[in-house]
Design a protein around this nucleic acid. Structure first.
Lengths: 159, 159
DNA sequence: CAAACAGTTTAGCCTTGGCTAACAATATTG
DNA sequence: CAATATTGTTAGCCAAGGCTAAACTGTTTG
């Protein structure tokens, strides 16, 4: 460590208490995030398919492509994966449907999503912003935090 | 739409107000998330490098690999990208340093991260959980929400 | 000061999740 | 009912972000 350090001055360790977490814990944080990323897209698809079925009665690849702002080819490929994972059933040129497992996942995702969305609104975030943030955040909120968010929202509504 | 619909009954549209958002808005949500994903890892690296420099005086590939729970090869490849993006400077086999742009990004990320972390703690989330959640959430929280979180945390501390 | 160890880089592989272009099937409509 | 429009699929491309194995550099130490 005899290197000249051009960053030596800033950013200064703002708060002494904010030292680096121990390596194992730090590693755990990143690993958890990476893990979430793997399932996140799958969940988004399943959740959207569930919503389309609930609100429209059918879920077509074209709708998904439009709503996700993604090409139909991408959706088609993804549907194959969802099939392999046994989350959806699909006949070519027909609406998609969710398997048992798919429905369970859709409900869980939807519930998560709603809790986060309602929480953000209860906090005072504008609706459009809340929707965007919720979409990104939902996969990274632990059950513990989720429970707290729900409680907060309920309390807010009472007053 | 003459298909038999095995999912017709559930999940029922729980709240009438929770209809699907208009296509453009919906698409915007997903696009924003996809966009965040592209920069997210970069920001994590830069933020971590900044932290290592601040707390340890140097940032070596091996430390990053350990803290991110990722192979050194992966870090090495990533550092090449960060170099191309002119966020870090590196001489082979020497500690990394941040460029101007890198420092700015590190500070912004750090600030974001801290706001989310302190907010979660103020909400009542346990420290270990808050750290994990913050790591995942930080890239998906809009400036608007961030401001609200900060205000909330301050209020909480006053009482 | 040579050998061993630690740290770094490179090469080459894999999967994911995008894309476009070309083709195939279904639906709509003149 | 044929032509056209819409929708879905396939093939083949790309970049990102992982990995292991092997080669190389630098440091430490017997």
């Amino acid at each position: 460590m005899t290197d000249f350090n051009p960053n030596a001055s800033l950013p200064a360790p703002s708060i002494p208490g904010d030292a680096l977490p121990p390596v194992e814990q730090h590693a755990q944080q990143y690993a958890t995030v990476r893990n979430a990323h793997e399932t996140e897209l799958i969940e988004d698809y399943v959740e959207l398919i569930g919503d389309l079925l609930a609100h429209r009665g059918e879920a077509r690849a074209a709708d998904i492509a439009n709503r996700m702002a993604v090409s139909q080819a991408t959706v088609s490929k993804m549907i194959r994966r969802l099939n392999e994972l046994e989350l959806v059933t699909s006949k070519p040129y027909r609406s998609l449907f969710l398997t048992e497992a798919g429905q369970k996942m859709a409900e869980t995702s939807r519930a998560r999503h709603d809790i986060v969305l309602h929480f953000l609104r209860a906090l005072g975030v504008r609706d459009a912003t809340a929707r965007i943030d919720a979409e990104g955040m939902e996969h990274h909120v632990s059950d513990e935090t989720l429970a707290i968010m729900q409680r907060f929202t309920e309390q807010q509504q009472k007053s």
